[in-house]
Amino acid sequence: MITFELNGEAVQADVSGDTPLLWVIRDHFKLKGSKFGCGMGLCGACSMMVDGVSTRTCVLPVVAVANRKITTIEGVGNPQMLSTLQQAWVDASVPQCGYCQSGQLISATALLKSNPNPSSEEIDQAMSGNICRCGTYPRIKKAIQSAASKAVLTGQSTQDGGVNIFEPGAQAKEGMA
């Protein structure tokens, strides 16, 4: 039995410890937002935040995340309450086929959390583990820059608050008010 925190809730999984976290999340917890892409940690479709760091979970044995905090795309926001980054994604029509975008958003969220105002090169670096076959890179970069500048403009710290990682939708709701 392995215990960890999944999107803010303590959970337990009775699975073989060598099972990659991705398949535990998808097959056991039935959260399907994180995707299988390569099985070798090369494409980033499976990215989740492990203690805030974007991590390839298709090669991460679940035993390695015991007692750690896992955030999947479902923990970033939802259609009714988008995070600032998700809203930027929608506004810039980033997704095409959409399959890689959960992983892209996880890496982008982790980036802004640690670096509220990244340079173009820093974005390239932080997103280098995430492949998009549809070629949405220019729009991903634009959306990250737009979300970062919004956070800076509103004087918010992107440490949790600015990109609303754990309180999805707060900013979207403010925007509507």
Partner: peptide, 21 residues
Amino acid sequence: MPRLDGVAKSTGTAQFGIDVD
């Protein structure tokens, strides 16, 4: 006009074949 599938594809809620269960 923004893509109509943008929200589903930015929240991990768009259903692909691999997500069927």
